[in-house]
């Protein structure tokens, strides 16, 4: 464990806590893409298959359980909670996320570290996570003004993988045999997808104005 990875995990946890706060406090999920949340739930379920077979540390196990439980709870809430589901922008959340699923799975069949069930699903979860934010970014552009909690949620979500990139650079320096190309390249793509959001987030922070994404 290194400071970059720890900060990355904490940033990821904060993003999830912000989303839970928004849904719990406002009983609303306006501006949140259910499709992105479903993709994240799938990312965690397919990445943490080793939850019960490979014990790494208490921290690792606890964080995996928190990520799986929170993502499933958010999807469940957005689908079934009477107040929350009414605030879901169904007509704006129209990204064809099934294509992201299919593309990630096909790519995982082609590009993986080892042709084994868990390895292919691990690669699938890495590719899927890289593109899972797309429905959310499209929804933000369509819904024009972005409420503060939603803006913070997306910001921390983008920042966590950027910190992981520093973690991979650090691990490579202390151990030149460390290679994790699939996660690294995907992480770069994932972070790059937030580039324009980060730009408008910075502008809104500098001008102390509301976060506006151009349509």
């Amino acid at each position: 464990m290194n400071i970059f990875r720890f900060l990355g995990d904490m940033t990821h946890l904060i993003s999830i806590l912000i989303l839970l706060l928004k849904i719990y406090a406002t009983k609303s999920c306006s501006g949140i893409s259910l499709k992105t949340q479903e993709l994240y739930a799938l990312v965690f379920l397919t990445r943490y298959l080793d939850l019960f077979t490979d014990f790494i540390s208490v921290y690792n196990t606890v964080m995996k359980l928190v990520f799986i439980a929170s993502s499933l709870a958010i999807v469940w809430c957005m689908r079934n909670h009477p107040l929350v589901r009414r605030s879901y922008d169904k007509q704006l959340d129209t990204f064809r996320h099934y294509f992201l699923l299919l593309a990630s799975f096909l790519l995982a069949l082609l590009l993986h570290e080892k042709f084994a069930f868990q390895e292919v699903l691990w690669a699938f979860s890495i590719y899927l996570e890289a593109v899972a934010i797309l429905p959310q970014l499209v929804l933000l552009q369509r819904s024009g003004n972005v409420d503060n909690l939603t803006g913070q949620y997306v910001f921390f979500l983008g920042a966590y993988r950027a910190l992981y990139i520093f973690n991979w650079i650090y691990r490579y320096f202390i151990d030149p045999h460390f290679t994790r190309w699939i996660a690294c390249v995907s992480g770069l793509v994932q972070t790059a997808l937030y580039a324009d959001f980060f730009y408008y987030y910075f502008i809104s922070w500098k001008n102390n104005a509301k976060l506006q994404l151009p349509a």
């Binding site: 990821h12 490979d54 990520f67 080892k114 042709f115 691990w122 992981y164 996660a183």
Partner: peptide, 10 residues
């Protein structure tokens, strides 16, 4: 088979 990277990250 090829050794795969340790899955020690979240």
């Amino acid at each position: 088979g090829a050794r795969s990277s340790p899955k020690d990250e979240l």
